[in-house]
Design a protein around this nucleic acid. Structure first.
Lengths: 342, 342
DNA sequence: CTGAAAGCGCTTACAG
DNA sequence: CTGAAAGCGCTTACAG
């Protein structure tokens, strides 16, 4: 490929002048500038970002490590981050940890090794990810997103107020007349799993609701599907189920549909995240909406702050969620006549 | 950060020996190797990928430009690519063109500028993306994925046999008893839009089906929603609607549900892609399944071939689709008694 | 305004 | 087996 050397030679100037003319920095006569730029265009020159980065210490790349891009929530989040960063002329290097510890460490090190300007990370584990996250954070600017690790007061974090989100969902179903509720969510391996689960217990108590034994596993559609079955097999169905995320909620919806349990006729369901899935399922899903764009905005802002001032303390940003109403918590009348004749 | 220089100094060897010891290349005594490695570990040395890349001409990064990561199909595809590439120790730099021409060019140039080893691109336009794609393909290995540009015999391409996929969907609904069908898909701006639309016309003729006026726009859930309305307003509903992708299909499903049109009771629906959405909607969606993992595999293989042999001709790989049956084309009996009493 | 030179961090012939 | 040196492509003090 054509290098700066080629352009300089073709234009008959030094490589230093060529660099300055192209970069628009330093004093260069208008004539030379024009000449160099024309030559560069003619030769199809494109600056080698690698050389530039080596010289400058870093290129305009930022990394993000998510547990699973194919989860619609992370897909949407990555999309928003890409969008925010592109405005700052920054590129996004994306890595997928598959929610696995060793893969996560490997990805983080790869990113650090290429001296990205900073890293956004959604930790795979609340406890076991801590060493890796801390180690990398010591090397370069890092902001935790959505999930965090334990004892992270020194680390930056941007996410939502999960406790309040679960509270919104619970208060909503209570208003809809639910008295007995159940939590179907993820385990304690992630901060988000913990926070939502604990919040459920706390708020249930506050509101004086009755809670059935929770069903706990991972954030997967398939889990929701099987959870619906287990719920159906119980002596009595709860009035409402609060799902840990939209994937589980839509799984529950699909599972109930297969077994002739009507939603919201027989049971109400709420999700969490506010992904496109909530519109696609039938009935549409009432869900706790995360402000994806705002999360990305705040995340980028935090990272920029860390980049500017390496010693900056790690701020913890908790954004508010909003309840997005769907039909899954509609009036408790049967919508599908075939299941329970009115 | 600690550099190779630091490690060499601390170990009391030359930088060349340190490099060889760490890289495992060239003859180095076992003792020195151990010494250097221990020193590197102790100092927390991590090779600077930038310096290495500059020296070697490229680092292990491959780029991918998709129209929209948040589309579940592309999210899944990106996930598969990341997976395939990670086995080869390659990283994935992801860029989002938003389906816009200038953004696409900008992203492609950014990727080329940082001398990625190669690029996977899903062109935004069939015709207008051609100059950009061709230009970049002249600079480095490029493989078109899912969509292609016109006159691309010199460019590599990996995607599915869209014509056959639409054929599978049409034959299926015909078997289910559909006589009148309609296509609700995307416009001709993308190759995929063209191929699926044309195939629909061809196969309808072959099978002797009657086709209503198609409804054409973009691959969006919202479009499916509004298309359902337009369909309902027609004097007669078709027996089946063949959607251009899962997003449109689930939009149609949601739209019909809102207006009390029963699927598959009143009309059958098929999607295209085989995303997670097909399981999430209710009824579940019959869709033309794309072999995502195989596409990624074949794509990587093509790119590797191009990397090895720059002059290699651009192979066009068309993978087969399979019909994934859901309830949206189930027996044409009414599933929901409230809509049309049996 | 312009050029020669140094140096970012690394790897790999080239000598020894 | 090991080291000195060149060079990947670039930018930026430093002179002039």
């Amino acid at each position: 490929m054509v290098s700066l050397r080629d352009v300089a030679d073709a234009a008959g100037v030094s490589i230093a002048t060529a660099s300055r003319a192209l970069g628009g920095k330093g004093r260069v006569s208008e004539a030379t500038t024009r000449l160099v730029r024309e030559t560069a265009d003619r030769l199809g020159y494109q600056v080698n970002a690698l050389g530039k980065a080596l010289r400058e210490g870093s290129d305009g790349v930022v990394g993000i490590v998510v547990p699973m891009v194919s989860n619609p929530f992370y897909a949407a989040l990555v999309h928003e981050f890409e969008d925010q960063l592109s405005r700052l002329n920054l590129k996004l290097l994306i890595a997928d940890s598959h929610g696995e510890l060793d893969r996560e460490l490997e990805r983080l090190e790869a990113l650090a090794g290429r001296r990205v300007r900073g890293i956004f990370a959604v930790p795979a584990y609340f406890d076991r990810s801590r060493p890796a996250i801390s180690k990398i954070a010591r090397q370069l600017p890092l902001v935790q997103v959505d999930r965090r690790v334990e004892d992270d007061s020194a680390l930056a974090f941007v996410g939502v107020d999960n406790a309040d989100g679960i509270g919104q969902a619970l208060r909503h179903v209570a208003e809809q007349g639910a008295g007995t509720v159940v939590f179907v969510g993820a385990d304690d391996r992630t901060s988000v799993g913990r926070e939502r689960r604990r919040a459920f217990e706390t708020v249930v108590e506050q509101l004086g609701l009755a809670a059935q034994e929770p069903i706990i596993d991972r954030y997967l559609f398939e889990f929701g599907l099987s959870a619906a079955e287990r719920l159906r097999d119980r002596p009595t169905l709860p009035d409402a189920v609060i799902a840990g995320d939209d994937l589980i909620a839509t799984g529950l919806l699909a599972g109930f549909a297969r077994h002739g349990v009507s939603v919201p006729g027989d049971v109400l369901i709420t999700g969490f995240d506010g992904t496109i899935l909530a519109d696609i399922c039938n009935p549409t899903l009432t869900t706790v909406q995360q402000p994806m764009a705002t999360i990305a905005e705040a995340g980028v802002e935090e990272l920029l702050r860390k980049i500017d001032d390496t010693g900056a303390a790690g701020a913890h940003v908790r954004l508010p969620t909003t309840l997005r109403r769907g039909d899954s918590t509609g009036a408790r009348v049967t919508s599908s006549a075939s299941h329970s004749a009115t």
